Computed example of a mutant assay.
Amino acid sequence: LSAGFGPFSRLKVAEMRAITLEQLGRMGIDLRDVDQPIGTLSGGERQSVAIARAIHFGARVVILDEPTSALGVKQAGVVLR
C-alpha cells in the first residue's frame, strides 16, 4: 500500500499495521508487536506468521513438513489452528 506517484510515493504504514493486526486477529494469532523483526519471534510465532502470510496472499494449500516438531504444546496448537 502506497500513496503518491513514482519516486514521491510513500508507504501507508498505519494502514498496513491495522490490516496486519486485523488479519492476524482473524486467524487467532496474537503477537506482542507487529513491528517486531521476524528474527526476534519464537519458533511458533514465526511458523504462525509464515502460514498467515501464505493464507493472506491467496494460498489455497499449505504443505508443511513437520511444522510442530520443535514447538511447545501451546505453540503447536496455534500453528495447527
Rank of each mutant, 00 (worst) to 15 (best):
R32V: 03
L71G: 00
H56M: 12
H56L: 09
G25H: 07
T20S: 08
I29A: 00
E22R: 06
R26I: 08
I55V: 13
R60G: 14
A52G: 05
L71P: 02
E45W: 01
I51E: 08
R60D: 15
L24K: 00
M27H: 03
A76Q: 09
T68F: 04
D30A: 12
R81Y: 01
M16W: 08
A54S: 11
G44Q: 04
I38P: 04
Q23E: 15
S2Y: 13
R32D: 12
G28C: 08
I19E: 14
G39C: 10
F8A: 12
R26Y: 09
I55L: 13
L21P: 01
V49R: 00
G28I: 09
A50C: 11
R17E: 15
Q36H: 11
S9E: 15
H56Y: 11
A54C: 10
T40N: 04
G72C: 08
S69L: 09
V61F: 07
L80V: 11
S69F: 05
G39R: 02
G43E: 04
G58H: 04
R81I: 02
K74M: 15
D30T: 09
D33K: 02
R81T: 06
R53G: 06
R32W: 01
M16S: 11
I63P: 06
V34C: 06
A18C: 05
L64K: 02
L80G: 06
A14S: 15
L80E: 13
P67D: 07
D65M: 08
A14N: 14
D65N: 07
G28T: 09
L41T: 04
I51Y: 02
R60H: 13
S42E: 11
E15A: 14
V49T: 11
P7N: 02
